[in-house]
Design a protein around this nucleic acid. Structure first.
Lengths: 163, 163
DNA sequence: TATTCCTTTGGTTGGTACAACCAACCATAA
DNA sequence: TTATGGTTGGTTGTACCAACCAAAGGAATA
């Protein structure tokens, strides 16, 4: 019963609170600009990660390909991304953000960063922010990889949890 | 253009990743026990926070009262919570977890904490976990209060963002 | 003082939107 | 022929808003 477990137990509460915040609530508040709420994450991935195929995006976000497919369709209609056929495999399309997409994302990120900086985290000093950043990156990475793993081989439940 | 803003800008990425993880993905994976996925947060609030009225719960979670209302209905049907009329105001019901509810929540939390401890955060040492815990609590608090504020008086957009 | 409005507030219910899943399906690769 | 990338159909869960009811809390009047 190491206290590592207990520390994780304590973590549940803030974690639940944090994950419970649907992006929606925040994004809906930051209304006003184009850019359909949902696809933002995808668009961001494309802008920062460069040209990708749909399946990559789905894998990164740990979400069904069908979800990505529809979101991409919407983004494309809005002219925020464009596709071109992959020359080496005609089943796949390569996706990238358009200039408009890039601009829209930048605008939204600026807005959000300002809200964070001026309202949410105004009391936080530099060093604390840096610390948070580091831990958050590590956490989200570990959480995402663990989720992926869970999703692909769910024999994890054989841990005793089911019996 | 203080670097406080820039730090917040950097934070956007891990934050988006983290918040993008719908609780669903995690909870669905941890299947097997009773306890409908959705109400877990509510139930937790009741167990840890004691008897409350519905509006309090909605406020805490920053969610519409109608949502809470339905989730409570479900939890009640499953016998995980119970209501009693507030003696001082017959419009409101006071809610609390039943013994079964308490047990179900505990079971689920144990499961999740184990997953965290053994899979997600197995590489993290004590001190890092403690740090994370502190920062996460502070962050979720600040984020929640800021969201509440945004929700109630949306004249925040008068920041220039809309013009 | 007691009674009758009017407004506010806590909660529920109906309708709708959206994001996610799974399953079925095409087209292209191997 | 089988496997894979992607799309589409159908379903579910969660959220919002608007409309509503019942109870409270004043304010105005008898």
């Amino acid at each position: 019963m190491g206290s590592h477990f207990e520390s994780c137990e304590r973590l549940l509460e803030p974690l639940r609170k944090l994950l419970g915040i649907r992006q929606l609530a925040l994004q809906r508040a930051q209304h006003g600009n184009e850019l359909s709420t949902s696809g933002t994450g995808l668009l961001s991935e494309l802008v920062h990660g460069g040209e990708s195929r749909a399946s990559e995006l789905a894998h990164n976000r740990v979400v069904d390909t069908s979800v990505v497919s529809r979101q991409l369709g919407q983004l494309e209609q809005e002219g925020l991304i464009e596709r071109r056929p992959d020359p080496t495999d005609r089943r796949v399309s390569l996706l990238r953000a358009t200039e408009r997409g890039r601009a829209a994302l930048e605008e939204r990120e600026r807005q959000k960063a300002r809200w964070l900086s001026e309202v949410v985290l105004s009391e936080w000093d530099e060093s604390r922010l840096t610390e948070l950043d580091g831990l958050l990156r590590a956490l989200s990475d570990d959480l995402l990889t663990a989720s992926r793993q869970l999703l692909t081989n769910p024999e994890d439940a054989a841990k005793e949890g089911n019996r």
